[in-house]
Nucleic acid binder design. Structure first.
Length: 724
RNA sequence: GGCUAUGUAGCUCAGCCGGUUAGAGCACGGCACUCAUAAUGCCGGGGUCGGUGGUUCGAGCCCACCCAUAGCCA
C-alpha cells in the first residue's frame, strides 16, 4: 500500500477543568488510530491543543484572582501530563491562546472579509448591568416558563427538557452577579454560511462516499440545509478572553472561531520545531494546509470529535477553510459518549472520574484495552461497566494473551538454553501463517476504527493459541526425553503466537505490549509487517515481566477518590453544561491549582502559555549539546535519597562518568539497568551534589515521577558514540 | 417539541444484500489438566432479538406507530 501523509487531531479539551475519562475515550480512540496507521507504514502527525478562550475561562480566572493566561498555563501543564501518562502520543500539544493561532485566525478572517463572506448587524442580548457584560445563555438562570422549575439555565430546562430563549425565563438573574439582566443591543459580526451552501453539500456527499464522514452524521446535517443556512455569529463583546477582531475594538472572536484554527496553528508550531531539528527532511505546513499544496501532495487531514460538536466541524469549519482558500478535512470521525455503569458520569456516585484519579490507581493500558473492545465506527455511546472492565481485561490480556508466554517460556529456558527452534515443521508453519493471515485483517479494522472487531479477532487467535498448547501438552512432552524436538517446536510456535498478538495489540496497549515483547523477545513493535515471518532461532529472555491483573479494590479506591475529589472544588456555578460530554466544551470539578505566574510573553511567534516544551531553538543551539551513548557499568540506589540512582557509564573515548539521575521512582531495580546503552548529555557542567559529583545528565522520556523511560539505542551503537 | 442515532442472553457486544434449530466473550454449572499470575481446554444451562401492527413463501434485519436512552437544535 502506498504510504499516506496524514495530519490527525482530536478535539481540543477546554482549559477550564481537568481531563476526565470522557476526554480519554476520544484521545485513546485517536491515539490507537495514529499508532495503527504508523504501524501500517503511513506518516502521521498527531497534534492537539487546549481550547483556552471564552467567557468561562475569563470568569474562572477572575474568581481565582489570577490572569486567564496564568490559569490556562497551569491547566495546560496538567492536561499534557495526564494525556501523556495515558500513552496518548501527541507530537505536539499547544494552546489556542498563542500568537501563531492569532496570526492564522486573522488571516482566515481577513480572507473571509475580502471574499465578502461576512456581515455585521445589531443583536439584542441580555446584559448584566452590574458586571457590565453580555451574558451567554448558560450564565442566565431563572424559572422555567414551561414547568416553572426554579434555577433553570437560559437555553433549556433540565427538569422538563423544554428549550427556549433566555428572554422567556421568569424572574431571570445573572449567574455572575445575581442582577436582573436587561436587554441591550450590540453590533455583531457574522459569517454568511449561505455563501457556502452548495460547497458544503457537495463536500458532505463526497466525504460520505469516500468514508470520511459517517452517513448518520450526514443525515443529521440535512436539517441545517432544509432550514436554509443562517449566518453564524462569530463575535462577542468585551469583556471576553480571546482574540480581538482586527479593526473592531471591543469585539472579540467567539471561542469557536479560533478553536479549530488551533489544530492548524498547533501543527504549524510543530512544523517549525521539526524543521529546526531536521532541516534536511522538512515538514511543510503548507503541504497539509494550503488548498493547492495539499491537493498536489495528496496529504490528508483527519479530525476525531464527539457527537456534540458535529456541526462546528462539518459546517462552520469547512466553510471557513474553504473561504480562506485552505484545504478542507479529509475525514471527521465522530464517536459517542461514555457512560459509567450504564449512567451518565456522576460526581455524587463517584463515576465522574478524572484522568489523574484513574492514573493514581490503575494502569492506563487497562482502560485503553477495555475501550478498544467497545469502540466501533458508529456514534453509539459506550459504557464503562466497571465489573466488565475488570473481568475482560483480566481474562483477555492476562488470562489469554500474557498466559501464552508465561506458560511456555519456562520450557525454552529449562531445556533449550533460552533459544527458540530454528525452524517450524509444516503443521506449525501452516498454523503460524494462517494466524498471521487472519490477524492481518486487523490493520484494516484499525483504519476503519472498528477496534472492537480487531480485539475480537485477537481474542479468537489467543484462544486458538491456548487451545494449541493444551492439545500438545508441553508439560507431558517435557517428561519424555525422546520428544524434546517436539517440545521445542510447540513452545516456539506458542511464543510466536504471543508475539503475533503483541504486534496487533501494540496500538491498543503500547506500554504493556512493548514491555512484555521487549523484555521477553528483545524486539520492538512498530511495524505490522513484522508479523509476516515468525521469530526463529532467537535467544529469548526469562519471562519476568508481570502484567498484573486488575485488583477490584483499586477500582473501588478510584471511585472513592472520585467522590472525594469534588469536595474541595465547590467553587460555585461557573458553568455546568452537559457534564458527561467528551467533546471540547466541557467543564467539571475545578481542581486545577494554577500558581500565580507571569502573563503572556511578548508575542514573537513563539507559543504563548509559557512553558519549555514549546519554545523554538535554532540548529546552533542544538549543536551545543554533546549527546553521547553511555553503557551502564554500574547502577545503584543512593543512600539518603529516595529519588536518585547513581550511574557509572562507560563513555568510550570520554572514559567513565558518574551521573546521578532522579529516576528511582521509575526504575526500582537498578542492577537490571547494567549493560544497557543510554543517552546522556556529556558537556553539561559537572554538578556537585551531596552524594558526589554528577558529570552529565541521562535522558529519559516522560513527565517525571514513575513516568520516566530511558531511551534505547538500536544495536550498533557503542559507548561514547555521539548522538546527533 | 424537531432531528439523528441507539435498544439482541445476567453483563458488554456481533449478526453481511431479509432465508435452515439467533452467535461470541465475560459471568454461571459440570468435567479435564496442572505448564501458567486459581491461568487453560472441553461440555452445558440461559434469549417470544424494546413494544404493537403491517409487507413477505419467509423478518432481529424492510414499513408505520409507540416506548425508553443519548446527543444536537447556529
Amino acid at each position: 500500500m502506498k504510504s499516506r501523509e496524514i495530519l490527525v487531531t482530536n478535539a481540543l479539551p477546554y482549559a477550564n477543568g481537568p481531563i476526565h475519562l470522557g476526554h480519554m475515550l476520544e484521545n485513546i480512540q485517536t491515539d490507537i488510530w495514529v499508532r495503527a496507521m504508523r504501524m501500517a507504514g503511513h506518516e502521521v502527525h498527531y497534534v492537539c491543543a487546549d481550547d483556552a478562550h471564552g467567557t468561562s475561562i475569563m470568569l474562572r480566572a477572575e474568581k481565582e484572582g489570577i490572569t486567564p493566561q496564568a490559569l490556562i498555563a497551569g491547566v495546560l501543564e496538567q492536561h499534557r501530563r495526564d494525556l501523556s501518562e495515558f500513552g496518548v502520543a501527541h507530537d505536539w500539544y499547544s494552546t489556542t491562546d498563542s500568537e501563531s493561532n492569532r496570526a492564522l485566525t486573522y488571516r482566515i478572517w481577513k480572507a473571509l472579509v475580502a471574499g465578502g463572506h461576512t456581515e455585521s448587524k445589531p443583536v439584542k442580548q441580555l446584559y448584566d448591568p452590574v458586571k457590565d457584560m453580555f451574558l451567554p445563555d448558560r450564565f442566565i438562570k431563572g424559572e422555567c416558563p414551561n414547568c416553572h422549575s426554579k434555577d433553570q439555565y437560559g437555553d433549556s430546562c433540565e427538569v422538563c427538557g423544554k428549550t427556549y430563549n433566555p428572554t422567556d425565563l421568569i424572574e431571570p438573574y445573572s449567574v455572575v452577579s445575581g442582577a436582573k439582566p436587561v436587554e441591550k443591543e450590540s453590533t455583531h459580526f457574522f459569517v454568511k454560511l449561505a455563501d457556502f451552501d452548495a460547497m458544503l453539500q457537495a463536500w458532505l456527499k463526497e466525504r460520505e462516499r469516500e468514508g470520511g464522514l459517517q452517513s448518520e452524521v450526514v443525515n443529521k446535517l440535512q436539517e441545517w440545509f432544509a432550514d436554509g443556512l443562517r449566518s453564524w455569529d462569530v463575535s462577542r463583546d468585551a469583556p471576553y478572553f480571546g482574540f480581538e477582531i482586527p479593526d473592531q475594538p471591543g469585539k472579540f472572536f467567539y471561542v469557536w472561531v479560533d478553536a479549530p484554527i488551533g489544530y492548524l496553528s498547533s501543527f504549524r508550531d510543530y512544523c517549525a520545531a521539526w524543521n529546526a531539528r531536521r532541516p534536511d527532511t522538512p515538514l511543510r505546513f503548507e503541504d497539509f494546509v494550503e488548498r493547492d499544496d495539499a491537493e498536489r501532495m495528496g496529504t490528508e487531514m483527519v479530525h476525531f470529535i464527539g457527537k456534540d460538536i458535529i456541526y462546528f466541524h462539518t459546517l462552520f469549519w469547512p466553510a471557513m477553510l474553504h473561504g480562506a482558500r485552505l484545504r478542507t478535512p479529509t475525514a471527521v470521525h465522530v464517536h459517542g459518549f461514555m457512560t459509567v455503569d450504564g449512567a451518565k458520569m456522576s460526581k455524587s456516585r463517584g463515576t465522574f472520574i478524572n484522568a489523574r484519579t484513574y492514573l493514581d490507581h490503575l494502569d492506563p493500558d487497562y482502560l485503553r484495552y477495555y475501550l478498544a473492545t467497545l469502540l466501533g465506527p458508529t456514534l453509539a455511546d459506550l459504557d464503562l461497566d466497571l465489573k466488565a472492565f475488570e473481568d475482560r481485561v483480566n481474562s483477555h490480556v492476562v488470562g489469554k494473551w500474557v498466559n501464552i508466554a508465561s506458560r511456555t517460556a519456562g520450557f525454552v529456558h529449562k531445556f533449550f538454553g533460552g533459544k527458540l527452534a530454528d525452524a517450524l515443521p509444516p503443521e506449525e508453519a501452516r498454523r503460524y501463517a494462517s494466524a498471521a493471515e487472519r490477524l492481518s485483517a486487523c490493520a484494516a479494522m484499525f483504519e476503519a476504527r472498528d477496534y472492537a472487531a480487531a480485539t475480537r479477532l485477537i481474542v479468537e487467535v489467543a484462544d486458538e493459541a491456548n487451545g494449541y498448547v493444551a492439545e500438545k501438552a508441553p508439560w507431558l512432552l517435557a517428561k519424555d526425553e525422546s520428544r524434546r524436538a517436539e517440545l521445542h517446536v510447540v513452545c516456539t510456535l506458542a511464543l510466536n503466537y504471543f508475539r503475533l498478538l503483541a504486534i496487533y495489540l501494540a496500538p491498543i496497549i503500547p506500554t504493556m505490549a512493548g514491555r512484555v515483547a521487549g523484555g521477553l523477545l528483545g524486539t520492538t513493535l512498530c511495524d505490522f509487517r513484522d508479523a509476516d515471518a515468525p521469530l526463529l532461532g532467537r535467544e529469548i529472555q526469562p519471562f519476568t515481566t508481570r502484567i498484573d491483573r486488575i485488583d477490584p479494590k483499586k477500582i473501588e479506591a478510584m471511585i472513592e477518590a472520585s467522590k472525594e475529589s469534588l469536595k474541595p472544588a465547590e467553587a460555585g456555578p461557573v458553568v455546568a453544561g452537559a457534564a458527561a460530554a467528551a467533546g471540547s466544551t466541557v467543564t467539571s470539578a475545578a481542581t486545577s491549582k494554577s500558581s500565580p505566574s507571569d502573563p503572556r510573553p511578548a508575542g514573537d511567534g513563539t507559543k504563548a502559555g509559557a512553558d519549555s516544551a514549546a519554545s523554538i531553538i535554532s540548529i546552533d543551539d542544538f549543536a551545543k549539546l554533546d549527546l553521547r551513548i553511555g553503557k551502564v557499568l554500574a547502577c545503584e540506589f543512593v543512600d539518603g535519597s529516595d529519588k536518585l540512582l547513581r550511574f557509572e557509564l562507560d563513555a568510550g573515548e570520554l572514559g567513565t562518568r558518574q551521573i546521578f539521575s532522579g529516576i528511582r521512582a521509575a526504575y526500582d531495580d537498578p542492577p537490571k539497568l547494567v549493560g544497557r546503552n543510554v543517552v546522556f548529555i556529556a558537556n553539561l557542567a559537572p554538578r556537585k551534589m551531596r552524594f558526589g559529583v554528577s558529570e552529565g545528565m541521562i535522558l529519559s522520556a516522560g513527565s517525571g515521577g514513575a513516568d520516566l523511560h530511558l531511551l534505547d539505542a538500536d544495536p550498533g551503537a557503542t559507548p561514547g558514540m555521539p548522538v546527533k
